[in-house]
């Protein structure tokens, strides 16, 4: 069976959908609440959105907008991951406005895949799509940090965001901040 070993790979996969839908700005919100024992991953884009008919079919593995093969597994896989951890996947979309995908998980569920390497996912997204913007916001109980490529670009001015030194900075920024908000271990 195909499965993603890390939630950060699902995030990458879903954001790829956003990019293919023509989004110029993608927000990734990860919210962990240890007391309520929930983890919520939300991906919001300003892409072209989906109409009602498409929206009804989108969780069906045998639906895809692509023409190279007959199945579309990204959303069904993400939904299955959420459902097998006591959560669910919700999709909101409006033509011309964008799409919001929200997956919830019971945080301590034994089958919940680890978050995995979010710094790698962010570095890859930025490196492969320097023209797009991403906001990654991660909250664990009281702690929070934000990575906003619009801010980074403003600081960099004429230096491209895909510059290797900048990518290294992004990786370290995400790693250090994640460590900090997960209790500084």
């Amino acid at each position: 069976m195909i499965m993603m070993k890390e939630l950060s790979l699902h995030v990458l996969d879903i954001v790829e959908n956003s990019i293919n839908a023509g989004a110029t700005l993608v927000e990734i919100n990860i919210d962990e609440d240890t007391k309520k024992d929930v983890m919520i991953i939300e991906i919001i884009d300003n892409g072209r959105g989906m109409d009602e008919t498409t929206l009804q079919k989108v969780k069906d593995p045998f639906f895809t907008t692509r023409t190279t093969r007959k199945v579309g597994l990204g959303l069904p896989l993400f939904e299955q991951a959420a459902k097998s951890c006591g959560g669910e996947l919700e999709i909101y979309s409006k033509v011309g406005e964008g799409t919001r995908i929200k997956a919830s998980f019971v945080r301590s569920h034994i089958d919940r895949p680890p978050l995995g390497n979010m710094s790698d996912t962010m570095v890859l997204l930025v490196a492969a799509n320097p023209g797009k913007d991403f906001i990654y916001r991660h909250r664990i109980d009281g702690g929070e940090f934000v990575l906003d490529t619009r801010e980074i670009k403003k600081t960099l001015q004429d230096v491209p965001i895909s510059n290797p030194m900048v990518l290294d900075w992004i990786k370290a920024f995400v790693e250090e901040n994640l460590k900090q908000i997960s209790g500084g271990v």
């Binding site: 993603m4 990458l12 790829e16 579309g72 597994l73 790698d120």
Partner: peptide
């Protein structure tokens, strides 16, 4: 970097290419 690529490890593949180029 489709679902199939990502599930097969394309993220690490691309990062390795970027690293080697750097």
């Amino acid at each position: 970097m489709g679902t199939c690529g990502i599930a097969a490890g394309a993220r690490q593949t691309m990062l390795a290419i970027l690293d080697e180029l750097k």
